[in-house]
């Protein structure tokens, strides 16, 4: 147990260092969603509706976590592949899922930094005041969003293991995620046919929990669904990961060369 925790921590710390000095995944992972949050709030600011601004400002803060994870996680294995380390990771006695999970958690941590920066930016540039009635549950909801998006990234990285141009897949998930998870637009406004997809995404519940906590309500139901979905992603990714990696080894297609 102690060895496992040490491995997870070391892997997380190393990846976080790599991400934070990467201009694309560190700097841009924060600036890109921040500018989209800015564009969104500029639209809301035209009518100057403070309640709507506060609603959008809160959700916009989580956009960065989604971006950091989906864009980076889809290319995670390709990055290892290009670095020539994918075979080493697969051959290591450590279960592959235990290698991927701390990496996607590190990505989500970069997103967590962007949550703080976006909230400060919204306050300074747009005057959006963060009024939180229950800070404990609010912070818990933000952490739930971070962890479950990391698990979604884990699933994404496994699914994209045989996809050579996975970067394009990750980039194309960015906007649909922002829309479907209700970060800046109420889900009720979306076509009904999209609602099941929204509710199958854990961040939808996390953002809802954040808003309920901010308003002083009880977000435990939303948090429970969110965490259950996150666990589901992780279990499915672990199940799929073993099979996909086995298949890649059996067919000698891991390198995709």
């Amino acid at each position: 147990m102690r060895d496992r925790l040490r491995q997870l921590w070391l892997c997380y710390r190393l990846q976080l260092k790599i991400l934070l000095i990467s201009p694309f995944e560190g700097f841009l992972g924060i600036v890109f969603p921040l500018m989209f949050a800015t564009a969104t709030l500029m639209v809301y600011a035209v009518n100057g509706d403070e309640a709507a601004m506060a609603y959008a400002g809160l959700g916009a803060a989580v956009m960065g976590v989604w971006t950091s994870v989906t864009v980076s996680a889809s290319t995670l294995l390709n990055r290892e592949r290009f670095a020539g380390t994918l075979e080493l990771l697969v051959a290591a006695p450590t279960p592959f899922s235990m290698v991927l999970m701390p990496i996607t958690t590190a990505m989500a941590t970069v997103g967590l930094v962007s949550v703080g920066i976006t909230l400060v930016w919204n306050r300074l540039v747009f005057g959006v005041q963060l009024q939180i009635q229950n800070w404990l549950l609010f912070v818990l909801s933000v952490l739930a969003a971070t962890v479950t998006i990391a698990m979604f990234g884990f699933l994404l990285s496994v699914v994209a293991v045989r996809y050579r141009t996975a970067w394009a897949l990750g980039a194309s998930l960015e906007y649909p995620g922002w829309l479907l998870c209700g970060f800046v637009v109420p889900i009720a406004l979306l076509p009904v046919v999209l609602h099941p997809i929204s509710y199958a995404l854990a961040p939808t519940w996390a953002v809802e929990a954040m808003r309920i906590a901010a308003a002083g309500g009880n977000p435990w139901n939303e948090l429970t669904v969110c965490l259950a979905l996150g666990l589901g992603y992780a279990a499915f990714a672990a199940f799929l990961g073993v099979r996909l990696i086995d298949s890649a080894r059996r067919n000698a297609t891991l390198a995709l060369t």
Binding site: V43, Y44, V46, D49, A52, A56, L179, V184, V185, L189
Partner: peptide, 8 residues
Amino acid sequence: YVGRAAGV
């Protein structure tokens, strides 16, 4: 959809 939500 942001425009619809904001009424802009």
